[in-house]
């Protein structure tokens, strides 16, 4: 197969299909839950639940850090998880080549990062992903909780980061197109995979953290 034909396929029809499935899939998963509805709550709230819900959605990622004793036992989860999410989201949106992609998808020009920061984010995301995966495989609690999905997702994301890194760094001759196509193919697969897996947790974050904040506001606790 001609490499350019493959390249055109993964960035053309396949990507379009994946994007459509992604947007339809995540909104399906979101609204499937939202439209289940909620029983009315007549208890008078002690604080402002709605304000608290918004506040928690914004600050929740930093809240776990205040648990010193949990942090000390699970530093790898907190630091690794933080670095990974920072890296993955940063790279998805603000790498120059990806910014062009987003321009085409949503029509908004995103700012781009300098290449030094791209490198730092890639290495830290890849490193923390490997560390988290090892931790997942070794920790008894995580062994109980982990299924095949988690390992598959981790492998997929690691390969995407790795091929992206190679495509950026490595002048690999004619293999460059294959490498780039592979990066795109894996990314397409990831985009397709997200709505069908636990990777769609980012949409439920808004729901479940929102509810947590809502409950906190209802009960008048600050945390």
């Amino acid at each position: 197969m001609k490499d350019v034909v493959f390249y055109d396929f993964v960035r053309g029809p396949l990507l379009k299909f994946a994007l459509f499935v992604f947007f339809a899939g995540i909104s399906y998963r979101f609204f499937r839950v939202v439209f289940l509805g909620l029983p009315a709550d007549y208890a008078k709230p002690k604080g402002n639940p709605y304000l608290m819900a918004v506040k928690k959605i914004i600050i929740k990622p930093t809240m776990g850090w205040t648990f010193n004793e949990i942090f000390s036992r699970r530093a790898i989860n907190f630091i690794g998880g933080f670095l990974f999410h920072l890296g993955f989201l940063g790279l998805t949106f603000f790498v120059p080549a990806h910014a062009l992609l987003w321009k085409e998808i949503i029509g908004i020009s995103l700012p781009v990062m300098p290449s030094l920061i791209v490198d730092i984010l890639t290495y830290s995301a890849l490193g923390s992903l490997i560390a988290l995966t090892l931790h997942r495989a070794l920790n008894p609690v995580l062994k109980l909780l982990t299924g095949k999905d988690e390992y598959f997702a981790n492998l997929l994301v690691a390969l995407i980061l790795f091929t992206g890194l190679l495509a950026n760094k490595w002048a690999g001759g004619g293999l460059y197109i294959w490498l780039l196509s592979m990066h795109m193919l894996l990314a397409d697969l990831l985009i397709l995979y997200i709505p069908f897996s636990r990777l769609s947790h980012f949409v439920y974050y808004f729901l479940s953290v929102g509810f947590m904040g809502w409950n906190a506001g209802k009960r008048g606790v600050s945390f």
Partner: peptide
Amino acid sequence: NMEVASYLEACVRCGICAEA
């Protein structure tokens, strides 16, 4: 309901709750 379903869907299997 909506609240319970979003909790059930949101779990990312990180196991941090064990330490709490």
